[in-house]
Nucleic acid binder design. Structure first.
Lengths: 352, 352
DNA sequence: CTGAAAGCGCTTACAG
DNA sequence: CTGAAAGCGCTTACAG
C-alpha cells in the first residue's frame, strides 16, 4: 500500500520506509497514505470538510492525530498565492491605545484562523508605505492600516491580485474605501461644549505627538469653543512622543503664559495624568482652580483623585470590527465599502 | 500585452511572452532573464553578494529595480525549510512592561531582517504550548518565550530540525538553556532591605495576577524582611489581572486588616498608582503615614506627587538581547548556553 | 464524493 | 564565479 512521491521515484529509485520523507517531516501525502485516500481528499477534509464523506473524514483525522501532522503554511501559500497572514500597521507600540486595538484584532483573527504581522509606523506615512512593501513578500491576505492616506503600492496592483485593506481609527474621507473609527473632530468638539456648559471661560489646550488625529481633536475643540463664544487662544503643542511627565511640563508652560487659565483639555490621558500631578505639586485645586479633561479613558482616569473627565474611545472595537470587515471580504462576502462610525462617549467625572 | 492566467496556459499551450508568468508576478526567473544570468546567480546575489562577480551583481540589481521584484517568502521557506519569522510569546499585550520588551525585540529583528509573530499566553503554560504548535506551521526560525517551563513539543524534535528558543524575563533554572532576564527574587529582596533601612516596621505586600514572577518577588521580599527581623505577615493577593483601580482596592483591604500598616510594597506600578490615589482620597500622607513602593518604573512613577520608589527593570534590553542571542545562534555563531543577567536598579524616590 | 497531474517560486546540492 | 536539475508540500483546475 506504499505510496511513492514524485521525487522518490525520480531521484532515489529505492522505496523509503512508509510514512517517512527525505526531510523527516510528516506531509499531507503521509496522511493520505495512512488514511488510504489521495492527498487532495486530505486537503479538502481540512478546508471544506462537508465535501468529504464522513467515513473518509474520520480516517483522515485519525491519521492526522496519529502522525502528528502539521500543515506546512509555506507550501499552502506558495500553491494558492495567498497566506493566512494579515499585515497590521499601527502608529506606535508604546501607546496603550493601540495595544488595545491590537487585542481586538487578535481576538477576531485568532477565532478566524489568521496570524498577523505587526509593524510600527511611528506615525509616518512613508514608514507605513515601506512596511507594506516589506510585508508584501509574505503574500498577506490583507492589511489593517492606521494612516488615512492612500498607498500607491496597494492601489497600483491589478484587480486580480488586489489586497484588501481596512483603515482604522479615522473615518475615511470618502465612502470609496473601508474604514472603522470615530470622528476625532466631534470628540474634541464635545469636550469644548462640556467645558463651556460648566462655565469655564479661559480654557487651554495641550498636545504632544501632533499626528493628524491630535490635530483633528484640536480643530473640533476650537470650533466648539468658538461656537460658545470663548476665545481658544491658549495652546501649547509639542511635536514629541507623549509621556506622563510631558503633561506636567506643558501645564507649566500654559500657566506661565496664562496664569488665570481655568481649564485644560489634554489631548490624551497620559498628559492629563501629568497635569494632575503638577497641580498636586503646586497645590492647585482640581477642579476648583483648574479643570482637567483627558482623552481615551486609560485605566487610571476613572480612579485618579480626583477622577478625570475624558473621552471613552472604542479602540478595542476598532480593532475587532476592522478585522471582521477585512476577513469577511476575504471570505468573499460582499461587504459594502464605507465608513463604520463606532462613536465615542464623554465621561464626565470629578476633574471638571 | 495581455496577460494570461494559469488556466489559459493549460487549455491553450502557447508560450507566454518573455518576462511574464502565469500568475502575473515578477519572479526570480524574470530577473535572471533580464540580467542575462541564471536564477541561481540572482539568488546568490541576494543572499551572499560577495560570491557574485561585481558586473553580474550590478546587472541583477538593475533588473530587480526595473521589474520591481519582491522575493516570495513562501517559496523561500518551502525550499529551504526555514523562514525569516520568529515566534514571540509574551504573557500579556495589555501590560506596558511586555510592550517595551516587544519594542526591543522589534528593534533587533528589524535590523536583522526578520519578522515576528506575536502570541499572548495569558500567563498560562498550556496556552504557550498551544501557540507554539500553531506557529510551528509557519516554520519559524526560532522562538522567544516568556515561560520558564520547558516545552515538550520543542524538546522532542530531532536535532536536525531543532528550533532554537530563548527564554525571557526569568533566568533559567540551569545553564542548559538560553535565558535573558534578572532575578525577581533579588529585586523583591532589595525592596525589603530598603524599607527596613528606612525604619518601616509594619510593611504589607499587595499583588495581583500572581504569576510565577510575582511570587518570586514576594519570596525575596519576605526573605529580606525576615533577615531584618520584621514580620512579613500582612499580604493581600488577588489572582486577577492587574488594574490601577485594583491597587486602591487592595490597599483598602490591607488597611482593614492592619490599620497601623506603615509601608506597602506593590508588586507593580499600576497597583502602586492606585494605592497612591487611594491614600490621596483618604487623606493619608505619603510617605508620612504610609510609604509606597512599586515595581518596573512605568512612566508615571518618577513624576507622581509624591514620586514613587520603584524597581527599574531592563525590559527593553531583555527583548533586544534575547533577540540578539537568538539571531546569533541562527547565524551559526557558537553562543554558549546560559543565563544572561541584566540586573535591575532600585530607584529610591519620595514615596518611601 | 474523489484523484492524477501540473505547477507555485524559490534553494539545495552538485558539477563545472 | 556560475548553472541545470530536482525537489520543497501544498492547491488549482479538471475529469470522472
Amino acid at each position: 500500500m506504499s505510496k511513492r512521491t514524485a521525487q522518490d521515484s525520480k531521484s532515489v529509485p529505492l522505496p523509503l520506509p512508509k510514512g517517512s520523507r527525505a526531510t523527516g517531516r510528516v506531509t499531507i501525502t503521509d496522511v493520505a497514505a495512512e488514511a488510504g485516500v489521495s492527498s487532495m481528499t486530505v486537503s479538502r477534509a481540512l478546508k471544506m470538510p462537508e465535501l468529504v464523506q464522513e467515513q473518509s473524514r474520520e480516517r483522515i483525522f485519525a491519521a492526522i492525530e496519529k502522525l502528528g501532522y502539521v500543515p506546512n503554511q509555506a507550501a499552502a501559500t506558495l500553491a494558492s498565492a495567498r497566506s493566512q497572514v494579515i499585515g497590521v500597521l499601527v502608529p506606535s507600540l508604546t501607546n496603550a491605545v493601540f495595544i488595545e486595538t491590537l487585542s481586538g484584532i487578535r481576538d477576531y483573527l485568532a477565532e478566524a484562523g489568521y496570524q498577523f504581522l505587526i509593524g510600527e509606523t511611528g506615525y509616518a506615512r512613508d514608514k507605513e508605505a515601506q512596511l507594506i512593501s516589506t510585508y508584501l513578500a509574505h503574500a498577506p491576505a490583507g492589511f489593517l492600516l492606521s494612516s488615512s492616506e492612500q498607498h500607491e503600492i496597494l492601489q497600483s496592483r491589478p484587480a486580480s491580485r488586489a489586497i484588501p485593506a481596512v483603515r482604522m481609527f479615522d473615518l475615511g474621507r470618502s465612502n470609496d474605501e473601508y474604514s472603522v473609527g470615530f470622528s476625532q473632530t466631534k470628540a474634541g468638539y464635545a469636550v469644548a461644549r462640556h467645558l463651556a456648559e460648566r462655565g469655564y471661560q479661559r480654557p487651554a489646550f495641550i498636545a504632544a505627538q501632533l499626528d493628524p488625529r491630535m490635530m483633528k481633536r484640536r480643530e473640533g475643540f476650537r470650533k466648539g469653543l468658538q461656537e460658545a463664544g470663548i476665545d481658544p487662544a491658549v495652546e501649547v503643542l509639542l511635536p514629541l512622543p507623549t509621556t506622563v511627565d510631558m503633561g506636567a511640563q506643558l501645564l507649566r508652560r500654559v500657566l506661565e503664559v496664562r496664569p488665570d487659565c481655568d481649564a485644560v483639555f489634554c489631548c490624551n490621558d497620559d498628559l492629563a495624568l501629568g497635569a494632575l500631578f503638577e497641580c498636586q505639586r503646586q497645590g492647585i485645586a482640581v477642579p476648583g482652580q483648574l479643570a482637567i479633561a483627558g482623552f481615551n479613558d486609560l485605566s487610571w482616569a476613572a480612579c485618579a483623585t480626583p477622577s478625570i473627565t475624558t473621552v471613552i474611545t472604542p479602540r478595542y472595537d476598532i480593532g475587532y470590527k476592522s478585522a471582521e470587515m477585512l476577513i469577511r471580504q476575504l471570505k468573499g462576502e460582499d461587504i459594502p465599502k464605507g465608513r463604520l462610525d463606532l462613536g465615542f462617549e464623554l465621561a464626565v467625572r470629578e476633574s471638571t
